[in-house]
């Protein structure tokens, strides 16, 4: 039998670590067993792969590593179903499979010479990490204008890649704004009160919040923080990835800031199996999220039925 699109490429689980304080999310670094396979696996930020555990099944997961980081593929995975639970039970050294790279990617060519605003929520930050690492890479940084990253989670401990966030906070060639929207241990979202180290913003009229230069951590929902930070829309792209509710409320804010639909970029997900546009379940209208997406501009989405 010839090697084909349905056959997983064998990889070894090299490193595993907990990513969030609730221990539901782990990050896995996978290493190809065969150097030729590694070379052939050329990917771009925003693409995904099917993580394949023979005997359990497959799960489509965004690639969190950047093609500028060689030697491993990184995936950050929440424990949800059969496959992801099996994956979470793995020890370092386990052998599994990867099928990909699949799907399209963020418009890294089109965005050259432009400013980029990354807006992320929760553990959907994975492919945004890939994009950020890619743009911050020494060879690539000069190709992009200002880089602004707005990232929020329910609690500080639910933010992913916290060691890297600390590094990015210090960088002069990008601005990182973070927010949390849930008090430690409290039932319900915060009101005006701030959690220690996290500044309150005017939640009723977030755009009126005065952002002090050295303060970059807030208690807010992501859309409110975007509204307060007011990233400039001129020559800028906004890349949005997060839970549906975050996307729903962030897009109007970006539109009001002047971002045209063709420069608001979203990454979607749907239940998938084949990943190559055959099995028929991830379509939104005539487009397949696996093959024609997962990255769609708002302009493209406006032409599709609201069925996602």
């Amino acid at each position: 039998m010839i090697k084909n699109s349905y056959i997983p490429i064998p990889v070894k689980v090299d490193k595993i670590r907990f990513e969030t304080e609730d221990k539901l999310i782990k990050t896995f670094d996978l290493v190809f067993m065969d150097k030729e396979e590694e070379k052939a696996f050329r990917y771009y930020p925003g693409q995904f792969a099917e993580l394949s555990i023979l005997g359990k099944g497959e799960s489509p997961i965004g690639i969190a590593s950047s093609p500028t980081e060689s030697g491993f593929l990184r995936f950050t995975v929440m424990k949800v179903g059969v496959v992801t639970t099996a994956l979470h039970n793995f020890d370092e050294g386990a052998i599994m499979g990867v099928r990909g790279p699949l799907g399209n990617w963020y418009p890294i060519e089109e965005m050259k010479g432009k400013n980029v605003v990354i807006v992320g929520g929760g553990f959907a930050f994975t492919t945004l990490r890939s994009l950020l690492i890619y743009m911050l890479d020494k060879k690539n940084r000069k190709n992009y204008g200002e880089i602004t990253c707005i990232y929020g989670a329910r609690t500080p401990g639910l933010l992913c890649y916290r060691d890297e966030l600390k590094e990015w906070e210090k960088r002069k060639d990008m601005s990182l704004y973070q927010c949390i929207d849930w008090k430690f241990g409290a039932e319900g979202p915060i009101e005006e009160a701030a959690v220690e180290g996290w500044e309150p913003i005017n939640l009723k009229e977030p755009s009126k919040t005065k952002i002090k230069k050295d303060i970059k951590k807030f208690t807010a929902f992501v859309p409110q923080l975007v509204s307060a930070v007011k990233p400039g829309a001129k020559d800028s792209y906004a890349i949005v990835c997060g839970p549906p509710i975050m996307i729903k409320f962030t897009i109007p804010v970006l539109t009001e800031l002047g971002f045209p639909p063709e420069r608001i970029i979203n990454s979607l997900e749907n239940r998938m199996k084949c990943g190559i546009g055959k099995c028929g379940r991830c379509n939104i209208g005539p487009k397949y999220v696996c093959k024609d997406g997962p990255v769609f501009s708002l302009k493209e989405l406006e032409k599709l039925p609201k069925e996602y």
Partner: peptide, 18 residues
Amino acid sequence: TIVEYEGIIDKRVPKFSE
């Protein structure tokens, strides 16, 4: 059948029969 395999879960690799 897409592919067959055997062995314990964290050591399985695809097996092909021509």
